[in-house]
């Protein structure tokens, strides 16, 4: 590093600055400037053509916490998060652990299968699951012919089951995605560590908890943060799988913000900006925790 630092002359230093300028300018214009704009807009109110300062200025924020529907969207988002993320990550580690076994045959085939859902877009898989769980859909055909259901059940028309379908769909789409991180992490662990554990008579269960999980800790933390981040911004599934329904019982924060700004109703950029700034604060807190944890590992 030192040698390289000394060898850089003024001309090269200038070239370096030119290289990173386009990306830097774009990030400032497309991320940093808009987020400041969002904060300013969140203190304003009225139709987008003639907005004025709200009275009191923090009115949109007061309104937000009294808005039952927004609070429900926050609740829904956290419900998906608390149920789906842990199940998904445990499944993903388990699959990675199984697929990392040297003696396993057809490894590549199984890995491709589990990874395959990542090849579909979020809108595509939302629509596939919407169709599978429709009242006249395949799930109902199977469950009624097996005698589990007496008559077709409206999965997407009932709040509880509609939420369950969203969670199942999320699990289907994202488990393989996270598995890829764990497989990459496991490849960094020497196989001899496992051999030694086997010779010492450790059960697979103990090996998993005492070797795999501690060594994967950084990866686990990272996927955990990423998954929370993704769930906080859930949009495509809420819009396309359930349309937020029935009666807004499955709506997510991003979906509700969209409805308040670009949806069919009256656009309220001020109020939508306040809610979106709330999401930003949640994500920022999370990123700060991520950096803190990232700093202290090894």
């Amino acid at each position: 590093m030192n040698k390289k630092g000394k060898s850089i002359g003024a001309k090269q230093r200038r070239a370096g600055w030119i290289y990173l300028m386009p990306a830097t300018i774009l990030l400032f214009v497309m991320s940093f400037y808009p987020i400041i704009q969002a904060l300013i807009t969140s203190f304003r109110t009225g139709p987008s053509s003639r907005m004025k300062w709200a009275t009191p200025v923090y009115w949109n924020y007061t309104r937000m916490f009294q808005d039952k529907l927004f609070m429900r969207s926050v609740g829904n988002t956290f419900l998906y998060l608390l149920i789906q993320v842990p199940i998904m990550l445990i499944l993903a580690i388990l699959l990675a652990q199984i697929l990392n076994n040297k003696d396993l045959k057809f490894k590549g085939f199984f890995r491709t299968c589990v990874f395959l859902p990542c090849a579909t877009s979020l809108v595509s898989y939302s629509l596939i699951f919407k169709s599978l769980f429709a009242t006249q859909g395949l799930m109902n055909s199977i469950l009624t012919s097996l005698g589990i259901l007496k008559e077709n059940y409206n999965f997407l028309g009932n709040p509880g089951s509609a939420k369950a379908v969203i969670i199942i769909a999320l699990l289907w789409r994202w488990t393989g995605y996270n598995m890829v991180f764990y497989l990459a992490g496991l490849q960094g662990i020497e196989y001899s560590v496992y051999e030694a554990a086997k010779i010492d008579g450790a059960s697979p269960w103990r090996t998993f908890w005492d070797i795999t999980v501690p060594l994967l800790r950084p990866t686990i933390i990272m996927t955990f943060i990423m998954s929370i981040n993704g769930t906080l911004q859930l949009f495509d599934e809420s819009v396309n799988l359930t349309s937020g329904g029935p009666a807004n019982s499955t709506i997510t924060m991003s979906h509700y913000i969209y409805n308040n700004s670009f949806g069919q109703g009256v656009a309220n950029f001020g109020y939508a900006s306040a809610m979106s700034f709330f999401v930003f604060i949640l994500v920022a807190i999370l990123a700060a925790i991520n950096m803190k944890v990232g700093d202290t590992r090894d």
Partner: peptide, 27 residues
């Protein structure tokens, strides 16, 4: 071409990871 100033700028750019799409879509 790294030097201290560029390393600092890089740390600032990383902050953009915190900005969710839904928060910037209106501006």
């Amino acid at each position: 071409y790294h030097d201290n100033a560029k390393d600092r700028l890089f740390a600032i750019l990383l902050l953009a990871m915190m900005v969710p799409g839904v928060a910037t879509m209106i501006p």
